[in-house]
């Protein structure tokens, strides 16, 4: 029996619950009980990575300090090393120069790992979106679990984001390999690290780059006209 099958079996309710009784019965299988305990433990001990990018990082520090005190959520252990962290709070503008280390840090985090994009900049580039060195959203490079809008989100807004994340963790099930992909499989594929070339290059988009380059070489006039059209919109 593989790990996957084992987990699924643990989770599947084998005892059919009669209608009308569902509200009275909380646990139908050992798997569900395990799930609840396991998620309770995980959601109350999220260790964020102490990793500040910009303005939002200051609000993050304010959240961690005495007035808002994220220790009440079991999150006070800010770790400087990605190896010990569960949650990466991307707090601030992600620049093209910085996204390279961020992707590397993300790859170094041990699973299960979560990413919280804090503030308009981390979500979608924010007011600096049009800038030539600004990544329009960290979710273009690493998967994001929770978005917390605001510029900057107040500490209470960030705490709300944490609660939303806890809710997400609560909803994850050991029996469903899609929600807990880190069990029952081999090591996950790292996100390819972008390259700093003439502009930032995402290796995942290399094929588009090649195609565009070929198009430019084949018919430079057409491509140029296309560029102009693009600039006009």
């Amino acid at each position: 029996m593989t790990n996957d099958d084992f987990l699924r079996e643990l989770h599947d309710p084998d005892i059919p619950v009669p209608e009308g009784m569902t509200s009275a019965i909380a646990v139908t299988s050992f798997g569900k009980l395990l799930n609840a305990i396991y998620n309770w433990g995980r959601r109350n001990s999220i260790w964020p990575m102490s990793f500040g990018l910009a303005c939002c990082a200051i609000e993050m520090i304010a959240t961690a300090s005495s007035r808002f005190d994220q220790a009440r959520f079991g999150m006070e252990v800010l770790r400087a090393s990605p190896r010990q962290a569960d949650l990466m709070i991307v707090s601030g503008t992600v620049t093209k120069k910085m996204v390279v280390p961020i992707v590397r840090l993300y790859n170094q985090m041990a699973e299960p790992k979560y990413v919280l994009a804090m503030g308009a900049c981390a979500i979608g580039g924010g007011p600096f979106k049009e800038g030539y060195n600004v990544v329009s959203g960290i979710d273009k490079y690493v998967p994001v679990d929770v978005y917390v809008p605001g510029c900057p989100p107040t500490p209470q807004a960030l705490l709300h984001g944490f609660m939303i994340l806890q809710k997400k963790i609560d909803g994850q099930s050991l029996g469903n390999p899609n929600s807990t992909p880190w069990y029952g499989r081999g090591p996950s594929d790292p996100v390819p690290v972008p390259i700093l070339g003439p502009d930032i290059i995402d290796p995942r988009q290399a094929h588009i780059l090649r195609r565009q380059a070929e198009a430019t070489q084949a018919a430079p006039d057409v491509a140029e006209a296309g560029d102009d059209a693009e600039a006009q919109v």
Binding site: S136, K140, G197
Partner: peptide
């Protein structure tokens, strides 16, 4: 309403010099 990335071939706020290709590129 539209998002800027919808108007960019790569969607990632990048623009490369004309004819730039990855082949043989060394950062």
């Amino acid at each position: 309403v539209w998002r800027s990335e919808e108007h960019n071939a790569y969607g990632k706020n990048v623009v490369y010099p004309e004819g730039f290709t990855l082949d043989g590129y060394e950062p």
